[in-house]
């Protein structure tokens, strides 16, 4: 069963698999993170721009490669403008699809403490 390639579902076209985060980091000289939102579009995320928000990010290109995909809670500012803030933020939907286009992020504080989960609201996790 499923021994050879099938056509892919057309409705998922446009959600890219993404470049290698280490390649992006090398090319742009910026850290690369991503976040998974609790929605199927980024519309609600637009309202979270340019203010201090608390949510979790994944480390996509850490120095120690073993730590890739480690979660950290952050207080940060985000923007859909790719270069507005210091680092790169990729955004995935609640079902894991990667939205095309980079956002940017300025991390103000980073913590291993997951108790911050209680402080996340709305679309951010």
């Amino acid at each position: 069963m499923h021994e050879r390639p099938n056509r892919r579902l057309a409705v998922h076209k446009g959600f890219s698999w993404g470049e290698d985060p280490y390649e992006i980091k090398k090319k742009e000289g910026r850290e690369v993170y991503d976040t998974i939102i609790l929605d199927d579009s980024r519309d609600k995320l637009l309202g979270e721009q340019d203010k201090e928000v608390t949510f979790s990010i994944r480390l996509l290109a850490p120095e120690n490669r073993r730590m890739k995909y480690c979660f950290r809670m952050v207080k940060a500012k985000i923007s859909q403008e790719p270069k507005k803030y210091k680092d790169i933020l990729l955004v995935r939907s609640q079902r894991g699809l990667l939205f095309p286009g980079n956002w940017s992020i300025e991390i103000l504080e980073m913590s291993k403490d997951l108790q911050w989960v209680a402080h996340t609201t709305g679309v951010l996790t």
Binding site: I36, S56, F71, Q94, R95, G96, L114, Q115, V117, A118, T120, T125
Partner: peptide, 9 residues
């Protein structure tokens, strides 16, 4: 129930 971690997809 407060000690939670986001998990999935």
């Amino acid at each position: 129930l407060e000690d939670r971690a986001y998990e999935g997809p």
